Amino acid sequence: MSAQESIPVWLDCDPGHDDALAILLASHSQRIQLLGISIVHGNDTVEHCAKNALRILWACGVKGIPVYKGIQRPLVREPKFCPEIHGIPGEQGVAGMCGYHFPDDIIFSDPNYKVEDTHGVLAMATAIKANPKKVTVVLTGAQTNFAFAIRMYPELKDNIEKVIFMGGAIGLGNTGIAAEFNIQIDPEAASIVFHSGLPLVMIPLEVTHKVLVRNNILEKLANIDYEQATAPECTNEKKDLEKLPHRHLEYREASDAVERRKRMQLDSQKAVISKLTRFSSKFAECFYQLLTFFQTTYCKEFGFESPPLHDPCTIFYLTHPDSFQTLSLYVDVETGSEKCLGRTLCDINSLSKQQPNVLVCTDIDVDIFWKNMLHCLQLASKLSPMNNK
């Protein structure tokens, strides 16, 4: 891909702290043309998540990206939200995304930051059909909106380049014993997508759990305006990432989870660092506080000393696919089991004899990811109205 080429992208999400960083990365990556954002149920209600998307776009100084409210519940099940990780809006005087109090009176009085009237599914379908180039669809929440779109408008598939989604796991889940949250809350929608015949790229927990917001990253974020703004080079040379036999992926994830739980039981609060009192800008303070809130909840719920930043991995894959290791696998979704509902069944040993339908990521170059993320954070800070004196 030449430097002049851009990738048309439709983002479907449920902000969500990690979705917020996915929005930032998508809107400040020079090779991405972000066509629009549709909101799906998940981390919170569609109403709250849509407002969060607008808050983040405002904080990043981005105008002209339309936001649409999509489907408010799973296709056939009752909705399930995630307040234990992303917080409950309104608690402790927090407006919107827990961890930072956004100036809603300023944001929502600006006509550039209004939710569009068109339904998210219709807006997605219209944008994909109308675009002169094939569109890449990125899903960082439940797959309800997209499943509904390709069922209502099957002709969309002709103008879709690929679908990249954060969700599922090769092994253990996170909010279910066997399932990952995004797939678990609407497994029927995921099943439609998995069997759509479209090129699919799955970024599972095994990969996103490597992209940790460690204390050194938080320190760089607090001083983001002083960091070097050099974008990482995108080359065709693959870095030697850790290689494990396929059958060992699940067992390592299990071992890691046990160790995290042991640390949490010893003293979960040791993982939460003290809040800094100095920041290079208001923007830096905002995103630092958002991620330290995320750190606190992940420590409490899962024993992570540093929280995994799941959703931006999808955007990073778009611009740096060679920074990932992958396997072509047949993957299905469990929709009939009460105990294993939503589990992604990754046939790593080809026992089903089915043709692979998903390109499953198994590793990521974390160093390049953070160089790219910090670069885009600094670009966003330069444009942010939060820094206006």
Rank of each mutant, 00 (worst) to 15 (best):
3 A>P: 00
5 E>T: 13
6 S>A: 08
6 S>N: 07
8 P>C: 06
8 P>A: 11
8 P>H: 09
8 P>W: 06
11 L>Q: 01
12 D>T: 15
12 D>W: 02
12 D>L: 13
12 D>C: 14
12 D>S: 15
13 C>R: 02
16 G>E: 11
20 A>V: 05
21 L>V: 09
21 L>P: 00
22 A>P: 06
22 A>S: 15
23 I>F: 04
24 L>M: 13
29 S>Q: 10
33 Q>P: 00
34 L>A: 06
35 L>E: 06
38 S>T: 15
39 I>N: 06
41 H>L: 01
41 H>Q: 13
43 N>R: 09
43 N>V: 12
45 T>M: 06
46 V>N: 11
46 V>L: 08
46 V>T: 15
47 E>Y: 13
48 H>A: 15
50 A>M: 07
50 A>E: 09
53 A>G: 04
59 A>E: 04
60 C>E: 02
60 C>I: 01
61 G>E: 09
61 G>C: 07
61 G>Q: 12
61 G>A: 05
61 G>R: 07
62 V>T: 12
62 V>A: 08
64 G>C: 07
66 P>T: 10
68 Y>W: 11
70 G>C: 05
70 G>N: 03
71 I>F: 02
71 I>V: 15
73 R>I: 02
73 R>W: 02
73 R>P: 00
73 R>S: 14
73 R>C: 06
73 R>V: 03
74 P>W: 04
74 P>T: 09
75 L>Y: 03
75 L>I: 12
75 L>R: 12
77 R>C: 03
79 P>N: 02
80 K>I: 11
80 K>C: 12
80 K>F: 10
81 F>D: 01
81 F>P: 00
82 C>A: 13
83 P>M: 09
87 G>M: 08
87 G>R: 10
88 I>E: 13
88 I>D: 10
90 G>D: 00
91 E>V: 14
92 Q>P: 00
92 Q>T: 05
93 G>H: 07
93 G>F: 10
94 V>W: 14
94 V>M: 13
96 G>A: 08
97 M>G: 06
97 M>N: 01
97 M>F: 03
97 M>H: 01
98 C>H: 12
